[in-house]
């Protein structure tokens, strides 16, 4: 472990662990509620397995920095500080949801914490990230944008155009590729001519921060810190995090059911377990603090579900509101 990661206090590290557990249990709850048809819709993309990447990278930001991502967005919104109750209410399609019940699972935004949203068109949010970073460059306000990018999203035009633009304009943006090995059922090796996705940076003349173990909070945090500070000072940076999603892409995902061994390999290095073990190593007397996390998380989730259930649904007025400014 480097000196950088030692800059986090014990209390901060417990908070990080709490956040990762919170995201895991939130997603498990969402799955349960979706199966019980309390959460509707045809799309539910869960973040289980990827917690260390989201939490690690966001921990490297200042509160004034920005985050934007794709549709696999609940965990990232929570990591950026969105109110868990209001994220859950959005899952229920309630008026109190972060997006007023109009966005749903794939469109979780909370501008109050500079979470610019989840976007459901693959790659579509990348140029938006460039534009938000342009604002910071334009105003010289020193803020950085952290943009999460799926491995599958590296293959459409949005990716190319956004990364190139960020390079030619030296925009303060970190492109964090969450390589969970698949886009739907397609392995990276089948979809990408250069499967080492971080190497794309070289083609754009952008700083390449290489590959990082996305199951390990400390590894992600350390590289993310370097990348974020590089972006703040110089311009775009690219990081590839190797991670894994534990759930299928969607309900019709039969391929995922077949990947038992691969799944087990990653689950042995589950982000929560890796984190717990490191904490025990660092602080031999931490057990009582660790033990408090699950009950605290359970209470938060229970309260969030109650809030969502008791909240009102949107009205006819909401249907036509906000079409225009």
């Amino acid at each position: 472990m480097s000196d950088l990661t030692k800059t986090l206090t014990r209390a901060e590290l417990i908070e990080v662990y709490h956040q990762m557990v919170l995201i895991r249990r939130f997603e498990e709850k969402c799955k349960e509620l979706y199966n019980a048809r309390k959460i509707g819709g045809v799309y539910l993309h869960l973040y289980n397995g990827q917690e260390a990447t989201g939490v690690g990278a966001i921990k490297a930001l200042k509160p004034t920095d920005h985050v934007i991502t794709a549709y696999r967005d609940h965990g990232i919104a929570i990591a950026k500080g969105a109110d868990v109750k209001r994220v859950m209410a959005e899952m229920f399609g309630k008026r109190t949801g972060v997006s007023g019940g109009k966005g749903g699972s794939m469109h979780i935004a909370d501008v109050s914490v500079r979470m610019w949203g989840g976007y459901a068109i693959v790659g579509g949010h990348l140029p938006l990230a460039a534009g938000i970073a342009l604002k910071s460059k334009y105003n010289e306000d020193g803020e950085v944008v952290l943009c999460f990018v799926g491995d599958g999203a590296t293959n459409n035009g949005y990716f190319h155009e956004a990364l190139n633009l960020s390079a030619v304009w030296d925009l303060p943006v970190v492109w964090l590729i969450e390589n969970n090995l698949y886009g739907m059922g397609t392995p990276v090796s089948v979809a990408s001519g250069q499967p080492e996705l971080h190497k794309r940076a070289i083609a754009y003349g952008m700083k390449d921060f290489g590959r990082v173990d996305g199951m390990d909070f400390f590894a992600v945090y350390e590289v993310a810190q370097q990348a974020v500070e590089y972006a703040r000072a110089h311009g775009p940076a690219l990081v590839e995090s190797i991670t894994y999603r534990y759930e299928g892409h969607g309900v019709s995902d039969r391929i995922y059911m077949k990947r038992v061994e691969e799944m087990q390999r990653f689950q042995q290095r589950d982000p929560l377990i890796v984190m717990e073990n490191k904490l025990r190593e660092m602080f031999p007397d931490i057990e009582p603090e660790l033990a408090k996390v699950e009950p605290a998380v359970a209470a938060i989730i229970e309260e969030a579900v109650r809030f969502a259930e008791e909240s009102p649904v949107p009205t006819a007025e909401d249907l036509t509101r906000h079409v225009y400014a």
């Binding site: 509707g40 819709g41 959005e90 399609g93 309630k94 008026r95 997006s99 019940g101 109009k102 966005g103 749903g104 699972s105 469109h107 649904v313 949107p314 009205t315 006819a316 909401d318 249907l319 036509t320 079409v323």
Partner: peptide
Amino acid sequence: AMDVPLPYAKEIELMA
């Protein structure tokens, strides 16, 4: 359909 983007919440989606 109504002249609006479609929302997530079922109640108002159906209205549109």
